[in-house]
Design a protein around this nucleic acid. Structure first.
Ligand SMILES: [Zn+2]
Ligand SMILES: [Zn+2]
Ligand SMILES: [Zn+2]
Ligand SMILES: [Zn+2]
Lengths: 143, 143
DNA sequence: TCGAGAGCGTGATATTATAACATTCACTTC
DNA sequence: GAAGTGAATGTTATAATATCACGCTCTCGA
């Protein structure tokens, strides 16, 4: 992600939060920036490290609170199978994302558009779906 | 799960392992039994507690090793979003399961039959998929 | 002025998982 | 049978992930 598109994404995120009546505070914005800068899924404690050039500040709750906020706002997704987080450029409030994660280079592609399960149990009402595909992206795919 | 069907499942699991040239040792069998007995997803450290009526034995590696074995054998699935484990009565070596987990009663329904994503990125080769749906089962669904 | 609530700092702790090394045991081979 | 081998397990410690609980500081209006 270029510095320019990063700035744009952060501005868009800020606007998105305001629309929701919430504030993208400095800590939250910084965490989002770090997540977006990363080339792949990023761990909470790596964010924590990155956050504390400052002296005392930045303990686990700081980063987990920010991540919770960003996830609720639809700006960040958690990769459940990795305990890691990825940025979302779509800022969709609703609907889980479908993630394609390259195990080799770490690149993450995100798709939306409910891959509605044809085979849900009768009467099951889905509230949240976790869909994560792991494999090789086109670049890393063995010849 | 009835005591009878539990016994059958364990016997079937044992046969399944033998076919694969592996052994369902007492520890592994006991862990599988505990997972199958549970009405829903079960946590590793709950298994650990259940394992140690015995004096010293049963430390974390014991249960994690057993779970790794059982997952590789296709007898148990990990619910990534819960850090918990569910038994699988199908014993499918290949292909991830599609899980429907009731957030109210904890019941887990499993479906197979790859709902192949229509919208995978061009050239992406999927090796493993995590598909977990959370919501309300027919019984727990609000009127 | 003075709550009320959001956001955040801080210390402690809970939960989940693995590393590293020793021991046991079944099985093979000499 | 003695000795070697490898899988499984026991054991100790620690790493990695996540949350609780409490208090402080703002801002915003009543
Ligand atoms: Zn998204
Ligand atoms: Zn790749
Ligand atoms: Zn299964
Ligand atoms: Zn239910």
């Amino acid at each position: 992600m270029t510095a320019d598109s990063l700035t744009k994404a952060l501005d868009a995120a800020e606007a998105h939060c305001l629309e929701r009546g919430e504030k993208l505070t400095p800590v939250r914005k910084r965490v989002l920036e770090l997540v977006l800068e990363a080339d792949g899924p990023v761990k909470a404690y790596d964010l924590l490290e990155a956050l504390k050039p400052g002296p005392g500040s930045a303990k686990p709750p700081t980063v987990y609170r920010a991540l919770d906020f960003l996830m609720t706002a639809g700006l960040v997704h958690k990769v459940e199978a990795l305990n890691a987080f990825v940025g979302c450029s779509h800022a969709h409030d609703e609907g889980g994302a479908e993630l394609f994660i390259c195990s080799t280079c770490g690149a993450v592609e995100e798709r939306h558009g409910a891959p509605l399960p044809m085979n849900a149990p009768e009467g099951f009402m889905i509230q949240r779906s976790v869909v994560e595909h792991f494999g090789q992206c086109a670049n890393c795919r063995p010849a």
